[in-house]
Design a protein around this nucleic acid. Structure first.
Length: 153
DNA sequence: GCCAACGTTGGC
DNA sequence: GCCAACGTTGGC
């Protein structure tokens, strides 16, 4: 039984079309402890990821990916030339973790944040709660299936 | 570009 | 350990 997740990305930085082109990516740059805990402890190989575009024209879910490698140290934390460099993190005890995901498909029709807010079956999702800033969010199987349904209607 | 929400930092 | 200041996220 896979778990289901929403991963947020700003399409200007990395979009669903970028991962479609690359076929897979490492999910680097997560620098929030709650999201880190999910990546390190909870996100498992075979889990399903909804790819969400944030901070853009039409925020929403644009595609589906699958976890192909479980939590391992995010190498960008040790790279002083990287935007996500963390000078306090030690190699023998890394602070930040990443997973690898592969592209499965783009949704025929993206499911927008606005549509998800209107759907009462999705009202418990942290994603649609005001002020939510977490970039890695767990969702239930039911919520996942509901979003897929919405992409077909 | 604005600004509310919220996590992190650091002085005390 | 409190909490004000600050930085970031992300919808609008």
């Amino acid at each position: 039984m896979p778990n289901y997740w929403i991963f947020k990305s700003e399409p200007e930085v990395y979009s669903i079309d970028d991962i479609k082109r690359d076929q897979w990516t490492y999910w680097d740059g997560v620098r929030n402890y709650e999201a880190r805990n999910f990546l390190r402890d909870k996100v498992k190989k075979g889990d399903i990821v909804l790819f969400y575009h944030s901070n853009c024209e039409e925020p929403g879910v644009y595609g589906i990916c699958e976890v192909i490698k479980e939590g391992y140290p995010d190498f960008t934390q040790f790279d002083s030339s990287n935007k996500h460099f963390d000078p306090r993190s030690k190699k023998e005890n890394p602070t930040w973790f990443m997973v690898d995901i592969k592209f499965l498909k783009k949704l025929k029709k993206p499911v927008t944040l606005e549509e998800m807010k209107k759907n009462s079956r999705l009202k418990n999702m942290r994603l649609i709660r005001k002020g939510n800033r977490l970039s890695i969010l767990p969702i239930t199987k039911e919520e996942y299936e509901e979003i897929l349904k919405m992409s077909k209607s």
